[in-house]
Computed example of a mutant assay.
Amino acid sequence: MQDYRNLEPEELAADSSFQRWKLAGDPVVSAFWNEWLLQNPDQKEQVEKAHFLLTAISSQTEQRISEQVQLSDREIEREISQLYKSLDRQKPEPVRWLQFTPVRYGMAASLLILLGLFGWYVLKPMNTKRDVTYNELVAQVTSPLDEVKNTTDKPLVVSLPDQSSILLYPKSRISYPRQFLGTRREVYLAGEAFFKVSKNPSRPFYVYANSLVTKVLGTSFMVQTNETAKQVKVVVKTGKVSVYAQDQAASTSKKEDYKLGGTVLTPNQQVVFSEKDTRLVRSLVNEPALLQKEAHRQSFTFKRTPIADVFAALEKAYSIDIVFDEEAMKNCYLTASLADEPLFDKLALICHTINASYDQLDTYIVIDSKGCK
């Protein structure tokens, strides 16, 4: 499951959902992408670049097929060599050629055709930045820190000086200052912990877990580090958090502290950060939970209820976005009583009743249906 905010234009062009939107005009996928652009207006330029690249790839591929052009291995090697030389002539620095212009799009498109649409990554420079460890993070702090290690087999409650609390899981440790001074509250984690942070917009709370930074103003969330897989996961229960890689800290810190930058997560959303390729992948949690304020009053009993109202009720109760073709499904109604089923079971029952299906894209639920008679 992709977090499209973190894809390069050539990666977007290789995504099947993006291709169905731009090349096939699939109405359901189009609805998802249009909604995504409304939520991520700063990504418009990336989308336009990806569309340009995809169009170039598509047109050149169609021309090769129509002309029945076949290249020998020697010709392919020569073409690749010439493309490399062209790229080298236009790059003042080793990675500059990834900053696409129309000329570079044409060359990239040709190269993708030769190597295969999904072979682009063999030319992408490897990230050689070394992973940041817990010990290194703590060693960089000049002020005294208290460290708590959980050597038991049960979660341990840790109280912080700002009235925040941490549920520290076994084989985990946390370091924090005896008093939070200045404009930030900063802690350092190795392992797994659940945070319940007291709200203070003027003094944001930062959790440093290896190469990932989590910034909050006041909320509850889980952070898990996996040293074997070189991954960090952040799961949000209430409020909002933002996450970003350590190497983005400089640009993110330019924002006012009372604002959230980076990749923003809301309840029932999670992000998995891979330290190997510095990739953030955002998605819904495996079992989305009812929001606390909605849980005690939501019945999910429907009697010939328009499907748009059904989806609206689910969106409100779980804080999720459901994308569907409202015009195509205007004659769809639901009569059912849904009780304690998990969200995805509810969706499966609803889709079975109205002859539809659903999928997850990023943090969205996308409904595919031809409508109801």
Rank of each mutant, 00 (worst) to 15 (best):
K316D: 12
Q248D: 15
D340E: 13
T238A: 01
V285G: 00
L290W: 06
I354T: 12
K303C: 03
V241P: 04
V236S: 06
V241Q: 12
R297E: 04
V323S: 10
A289C: 02
F311A: 06
D309V: 08
F221K: 06
V271A: 06
F344C: 01
K255A: 06
V243T: 10
V272C: 10
K233Q: 15
V223S: 04
M222T: 14
D257Q: 10
V241K: 13
T305S: 09
Q360H: 12
F302G: 02
Q360D: 04
V236N: 05
V323D: 03
Q246D: 13
V264F: 07
D277R: 04
A312H: 07
E341M: 02
G239N: 10
S319Q: 10
T305Y: 05
A312W: 02
P267G: 06
V310W: 02
C351L: 08
E326A: 15
R297I: 14
Q292P: 04
M329R: 07
V241C: 10
A245T: 08
A308Q: 07
F344T: 01
R279S: 14
P288N: 07
S242C: 13
K230E: 15
F311N: 04
S337P: 02
A317S: 15
T225N: 11
F273R: 04
L284A: 09
V264H: 04
A313K: 07
F324W: 12
I320V: 15
N286G: 13
N331L: 12
C332Q: 09
P306W: 00
Q224W: 08
N355K: 12
F273N: 03
N355M: 04
L338Y: 04
T353C: 03
T363I: 09
D325W: 03
R297M: 09
F344N: 00
D257W: 02
L291V: 05
A356V: 12
Y244W: 10
V310H: 05
D257E: 06
V285M: 05
L347I: 05
D345E: 15
D340M: 00
D321P: 00
I320T: 01
A313M: 05
I320W: 03
